[in-house]
Design a protein around this nucleic acid. Structure first.
Lengths: 209, 209
DNA sequence: TAGCAAATGTTGCATTTGCAACATTTTACA
DNA sequence: TGTAAAATGTTGCAAATGCAACATTTGCTA
């Protein structure tokens, strides 16, 4: 995953952050950081920790929209923040640096040496996010649990270049990512094994075709 | 929707396009434009016409991943283009300008007056795409057709700031967007009407709560 | 390391859904 | 403007799935 400050030395990072009017906040585990959010558009970079965007139903049903790990970023431009159903929860103690969106093109910063790297990193990160979401949409549009699982397994296999891989989350989280009932998913996984389509060993999966 | 060349005058657009090594191609209706795609990463801008990204199953089931209208853009960085299951079909006669991704930060172009506008437009478009996809993911993760419909209706109402709105596509296309069976969706819509939750008049929907 | 919480596995059952087949209406365009 | 294609509406039925309830295993931490 690309870091927003990749290929930029410490000195220039400090300079860019200054021009970007960056401010850094630290949150404890389990708080909703969107509750006291700045005015105006911003970009948030996760220095340490991780967060999760969660959508909650009128029924209390929760679905994870996105997991953002250490080094990741998110922005007010990419989330319907004013949607009261969406919250952004820290999964652990988390330090976040906020950047004002309008400042990314101010006069000072575009004269900075590493500015082009910064912009290219930002564009790359956004592109990767679109790509990731396209992958998830392609999976979610499959009608059956079986097809969702197979599409997910195929996308993992494609990404790793290997028909054997370890899924990077628990089965409980996978069910949430695929938006299916966990127990029904377990059932379908055993059918896939019975039919000789996959082999499993814990979270290690092998596609057999 | 933001256009990649918004706030840039004709002269500078020509200059930027030259530095970007832009090439323009025109396609007839109904062809897969990814079949003969350039080497390397690129950004494609739709000058006239529109395209649709479609994923096709081993069963032949098709699902629309994204509709891109006139003025829209897409890129090799945001689509798993090497995935043989995804195709990009022109919905009508379509003219597309291709830009080489690496050239968006070449030495010539960053000296151009309107470069900052160009970059800001690009970032805005990518952010909007992420945001749109987050909305769709939030809808697709709902378990029932009823909840998918309601989430979609709410997101439309939110966006328009009005509980009455006209859906911007056919019901057939909506079923595809929600990834549900069209006839089952029609059935669910009449249940929603019976239950007094919505009112409809053709594609005009009113949320009654 | 004991104990508790989370993850995983299993199954019956009611509900939801896709699918198919068909009638009717609307739209596009030759 | 006539006609074919697309969109819309309806319904029976079988398949898929969510849900609930429970047993078992794993992992964390006090």
């Amino acid at each position: 995953m690309v870091n927003l400050f990749e290929n930029i030395n410490e000195q220039n990072i400090r300079k860019i952050k200054r021009f970007l009017m960056a401010s850094t906040l630290t949150y404890p585990k389990g708080v909703n950081i969107l509750s006291n959010v700045n005015q105006g558009d911003f970009i948030a970079i996760i220095d340490h920790g991780s967060v999760q965007f969660i959508s909650t139903d009128y029924d209390g049903n929760k679905s994870i929209i996105e997991d953002i790990p250490e080094g990741g970023m998110f922005g007010s431009l990419t989330f319907p923040i004013n949607n009261e159903e969406v919250s952004c929860i820290t999964k652990e103690i988390t330090q976040i640096t906020y950047i004002e969106y309008d400042s990314i093109t101010n006069d000072e910063i575009i004269k900075t040496d590493s500015y082009i790297f910064f912009i290219k990193n930002l564009i790359k990160i956004l592109s990767d996010q679109v790509s990731e979401k396209n992958t998830r949409i392609e999976i979610l549009t499959k009608k059956t649990t079986r097809d969702k699982l197979l599409e997910y397994f195929k996308s993992e296999a494609r990404e790793r270049g290997n028909k054997t891989f370890t899924i990077p989350m628990t089965f409980t989280e996978l069910a949430s990512y695929l938006s299916v009932d966990r127990s029904a998913m377990t059932r379908e996984i055993s059918y896939l094994k019975d039919d000789g389509i996959i082999k499993t060993n814990g979270r290690r999966i092998t596609l057999l075709y």
